[in-house]
C-alpha cells in the first residue's frame, strides 16, 4: 500500500521509497525504510496528505505520497 491510501491516525511503517524524481528529497527529509509514519489529515481536492514522522509534521502532494510504500506496523 502507498501512503496516499493510509487510514487517518493509524501508525504504519515505511517499507520502501520508490525510485524516481523525488526519491532523494524524501530520503533526505527522513522518509527511510522502517521509520514509523502516521497520516494526520488529507486536504480537499486532490489528496495532499499531512503526515507525522520522526517527531515532525510534513505535507506531501499525492504525487509525492505515492513514492512511499507503507505496511502495517
Amino acid at each position: 500500500m502507498v501512503l496516499s491510501g493510509a487510514k487517518l491516525n493509524s501508525v504504519y511503517k515505511i517499507a520502501e521509497v520508490k525510485d524516481g524524481r523525488l526519491t532523494r528529497r524524501l530520503l533526505d527529509m527522513g522518509f527511510t525504510p522502517r521509520c514509523k509514519i502516521k497520516a494526520l489529515g488529507f486536504a480537499p481536492f486532490g489528496g495532499t496528505v499531512l503526515v507525522e514522522l520522526r517527531g515532525f509534521t510534513v505535507a506531501l502532494r499525492k504525487s509525492a505520497a505515492e513514492y512511499i510504500v507503507i505496511e502495517a506496523d
Binding site: 524524481r21 523525488l22 528529497r25 524524501l26 527529509m29 495532499t48 499531512l50 515532525f56 509534521t57 510534513v58 505535507a59 506531501l60 502532494r61 504525487s63 509525492a64
Partner: peptide, 9 residues
C-alpha cells in the same frame, strides 16, 4: 511541469 509539494508544518 510536475511540481512537488513537500512542505514541513
Amino acid at each position: 511541469g510536475e511540481g512537488s509539494f513537500v512542505m514541513e508544518m
